[in-house]
Design a protein around this nucleic acid. Structure first.
Lengths: 191, 191
DNA sequence: AATTCTTATTAAACTAGTTTAATAAATGTT
DNA sequence: AACATTTATTAAACTAGTTTAATAAGAATT
């Protein structure tokens, strides 16, 4: 659980005893490539941390997968939209590789926050971090061209392109596979 | 401050004494049409509540205003991105009408949260609400056509179209004025 | 090695926007 | 009321994507 511990401490100072209290609730879980952690219609009651692997977070729009996010090592994740609101999910979480994750239930999160002010602060700050990321995402969707967003992803998360098929990256960028292929061709020729 | 009080209580139960404690820090402020509450480069240290009026939240991208949001009666607002991170703003807040707002400083927010668990809960839940709204926004940008987003805005905030010029609405939708005009023409003709 | 299945590219026709520029309509001012 | 200014529409040429379908390339299976 060293990675999990380090990631929590990157948000807030947490004493060893509070950390120990919090970590006791996390349970290790393994998902094989192709396995679903969540399907549309289900309620989601767990918060996850990626120890190893890659999970896609997607919705089906008119039968087609729309990838919202790729969660890789060091990410906290869940279907936060459904989790927060306590409503059935409209999304899917699928292991794109064999994955090792740690999970904690909503009830245990509540226990941890009740017990430790420092860990509640971690919770608040990680929520703020999510706000910042979503804000940037909105700005990028509004102000950058598809080509610019492709180049930015290439720069920010280069390894993703080695582990995820291109048509899923296209979906993440809001493109068809054909569209992304065209962008790549354009870039190959021009610059 | 009745509207402010009601809006806070729509998020969390707050006792009269905690409410009184919190409200004492809010200060009424008036902005004339065209006035700026914030300009790019400035630090933002206040959180606002719209009592009356309409404020646009926009960035300049290559000299052109890109409207992120219109804040109207009952909205809490600030440049949350800059406020949270304590960095200079890259945005503008401009009164599109004569406005009455209540504002509270970051330091006073901290005092209020330290003093009242109920009001801290309001703070957390309003942050969650912001998450939900931003999440929906991302989904709409990804999955809806411009025409669909126009129709949805028309349905969700019909009065906006009476008080804000159309070219600002176009900007909010991520369109040029010409583009929005075309969409409206198409809708007029077809259905 | 050959076959099958999945993934990526290309082509062609199409679509919903863009830009620029002209015009029309609405609003505000003298 | 006349004029100036701002805002909205239209037209024309253009652009970056879409869809569908065919092909090519790569990976996994027999």
């Amino acid at each position: 659980m060293e990675d999990l511990k380090k990631t929590i401490r990157s948000y807030a100072n947490v004493s060893d005893s509070d950390m120990e209290f919090g970590l006791q609730f996390y349970k290790k879980e393994i998902f094989r490539k192709g396995a679903h952690l969540l399907q549309a219609g289900q309620y989601i009651n767990d918060f996850y941390f990626v120890q190893q692997g890659c999970i896609s977070y997607y919705t089906l729009e008119e039968g087609k997968a729309q990838v919202m996010e790729f969660f890789t090592e060091g990410y906290f994740f869940t279907d936060l939209y459904a989790y927060i609101q306590g409503i059935p999910s409209e999304s899917y979480l699928e292991a794109l590789e064999d994955c090792v994750v740690y999970k904690i239930s909503k009830e245990d999160v509540q226990k941890v926050f009740d017990h430790s002010h420092q860990l509640e602060r971690f919770g608040r700050l990680s929520m703020q971090r999510t706000f910042v990321i979503n804000f940037q995402r909105i700005n990028e969707l509004r102000n950058l061209s598809n080509q610019e967003r492709y180049l930015q992803l290439l720069k920010k998360r280069p390894t993703l392109f080695q582990r995820v098929p291109q048509y899923l990256i296209a979906s993440y960028l809001g493109l068809t596979p054909v569209g992304l292929s065209k962008i790549r061709k354009r870039l190959r020729q021009k610059g």
